[in-house]
Design a protein around this nucleic acid. Structure first.
Lengths: 144, 144
DNA sequence: TGTAATCCTGACTGAATAGGTGAGGTTTTG
DNA sequence: CAAAACCTCACCTATTCAGTCAGGATTACA
């Protein structure tokens, strides 16, 4: 299972949501248009994130999404695992996928690759990405 | 592009070839059967590895494959890149895949993940894997 | 020369996954 | 009741995966 556009889109939309730092829910369509994401596709993703406890949703007029967990406690790995499932950069990394583990050291290589990806992705939060973007576009916050 | 069974099969077969340490070519069917790999599938993979300069092939009776480069100079990353293409654990990691790099710091995360996988896979050679296996199954070499 | 062993290659295929779209339903506000 | 928003399930098309098939080319040896 690869890391697909699901995670890519979701992370971008979450960063957008974090940057707005709104105390009222933000409608999904707003996030989708701001980042060029197909809105019906994003609906599926945000629905899954809500069920997973990452987001809160509010229906009806003035409805939308807001974080259910602070964005500095949401890692990119969290998002990837919810939307794309466990990371498996290669086969043979899950417990029972390979019946030859006892006599085959090759699998260790794929496991190491998996672990290193998890380490990178679990080391970055949505909050951090939002801050990085803020410092990128303008950096005016430091000079006003 | 994920890491597929192509790389998995190829690495296993190459480790088998390295362990035989034969000075005559080893027929592909022998390697395939030793490791439970569909032989016609492995043919495609070994063909590609030969074209890439990793293997030598010899046709006809007593033909087979042998290394064209010493197995301690063949990394797992070499094999993966030949058979599965450049590693892209996520989208947005190749140069022109994302048109928003200038304003989007999110891509950096995927690039870091890609680099960490490359680092792991380029740090392991076929020779090392062959030696690890030898020390695994029996370790009798130390006691006879 | 014939035959068996072996590599070589391109076409094909069934199943799964990726990346969405469509249609309609439910909830809330005014 | 209308509009805005979320919710959900079914569907769809293109691509990729993991091979299989069929046949050809080369070599060793009897």
């Amino acid at each position: 299972m690869n890391i697909t556009t699901k995670s890519k889109y979701a992370v971008r939309a979450l960063v957008e949501l974090a940057r707005r730092n709104s105390d009222v829910p933000v409608p999904l369509i707003v996030l989708a248009e701001a980042r060029g994401i197909p809105s019906q596709f994003l609906e599926q993703l945000f629905s899954a994130l809500r069920r997973a406890g990452i987001l809160q949703s509010f229906r009806g007029v003035y409805g939308g999404f807001s974080f259910n967990r602070p964005p500095d406690q949401i890692t990119v790995l969290d998002i990837v695992e919810i939307l794309d499932g466990p990371i498996e950069p290669a086969v043979c990394t899950s417990d029972d996928a390979c019946d030859k583990r006892a006599i085959c050291s090759v699998g260790d290589v794929w496991v190491q690759a998996k672990l290193s990806v998890e380490e990178v992705l679990s080391g970055v939060t949505i909050q951090e990405l939002a801050l990085r973007e803020s410092s990128l576009d303008g950096a005016s916050m430091y000079y006003i």
